[in-house]
Simulated scan of single mutants.
Amino acid sequence: MATLVTVAPLFLGGDPFPSLAYAVCMLMGAGFLIAGAGVLRGIAVQRRQARSAAGPAAGSSAT
């Protein structure tokens, strides 16, 4: 939403925002990458905890 608000004046013929606003808008992608990395790290931690709670026999596939 913030990106749309930032670039809307360019398409609607209004006065453009200062360059700093566009620089901040570009940082949004970095924020999404950091958030995604945190989600993946949390998933990995939960999987490790679930495996250790289940015991050593749960991870092996011996028949």
Score class of each variant (00 low, 15 high):
Met1Ser: 15
Met1Val: 14
Ala2Arg: 13
Thr3Arg: 13
Thr3Leu: 13
Thr3Ser: 09
Thr3Val: 14
Leu4Tyr: 09
Leu4Glu: 10
Leu4Lys: 14
Leu4Cys: 12
Leu4Thr: 15
Val5Gly: 04
Val5Glu: 08
Val5Asn: 08
Val7Gln: 00
Val7Leu: 14
Ala8Ile: 03
Pro9Trp: 09
Leu10His: 10
Leu10Gly: 12
Leu10Val: 15
Phe11Tyr: 11
Phe11Gly: 08
Leu12Lys: 07
Gly13Tyr: 05
Gly13Thr: 12
Gly13Gln: 02
Gly13Cys: 09
Asp15Pro: 02
Asp15Cys: 09
Asp15Thr: 15
Pro16Gly: 06
Pro16Gln: 08
Phe17Gly: 00
Pro18Thr: 12
Pro18His: 12
Pro18Asn: 09
Ser19Trp: 07
Leu20Gln: 11
Leu20His: 11
Leu20Lys: 10
Leu20Phe: 14
Ala21Cys: 10
Ala21Glu: 03
Tyr22Arg: 04
Ala23Ser: 06
Ala23Asn: 02
Ala23Met: 07
Val24Trp: 06
Val24Tyr: 09
Val24Leu: 13
Val24Asp: 05
Cys25Lys: 04
Cys25Tyr: 00
Met26Cys: 06
Leu27Asn: 14
Met28Phe: 05
Gly29Asp: 04
Gly29Pro: 01
Ala30Tyr: 11
Gly31Cys: 07
Gly31Val: 13
Phe32Ala: 15
Phe32Pro: 01
Leu33Gly: 12
Leu33Arg: 07
Leu33Asn: 05
Ile34Tyr: 12
Ala35Met: 08
Gly36Tyr: 03
Gly36Ala: 10
Gly36Cys: 02
Gly36Pro: 01
Gly36Gln: 07
Gly38Asn: 08
Gly38Arg: 06
Val39Gly: 03
Val39Met: 11
Leu40Met: 09
Arg41Val: 14
Arg41Gln: 12
Gly42Ser: 11
Gly42Leu: 06
Gly42Tyr: 00
Ile43Val: 15
Ile43His: 14
Ile43Trp: 04
Ile43Gly: 01
Ala44Phe: 02
Ala44His: 11
Ala44Lys: 14
Val45Tyr: 00
Gln46Ile: 08
Gln46Phe: 00
Gln46Val: 13
Gln46Glu: 07
Gln46Arg: 14
Arg47Tyr: 00
Arg47Lys: 07
Arg48Ile: 04
Arg48Met: 11
Gln49Cys: 03
Gln49Ser: 09
Ala50Val: 05
Ala50Met: 00
Ala50Ile: 06
Arg51Lys: 02
Ser52Asn: 07
Ser52Tyr: 00
Ser52Gln: 13
Ser52Trp: 05
Ala53His: 07
Ala53Val: 02
Ala53Ile: 01
Ala54Tyr: 01
Ala54His: 02
Gly55Glu: 02
Gly55Ala: 04
Pro56Ala: 15
Pro56Asp: 10
Ala57Gly: 02
Ala58Arg: 13
Ala58Leu: 10
Gly59His: 03
Gly59Arg: 07
Ser60Gly: 13
Ser60Cys: 06
Ser61His: 07
Ala62Asn: 11
Ala62Trp: 11
Thr63Asp: 00
Thr63Pro: 03
Thr63Lys: 06
Thr63Ile: 08
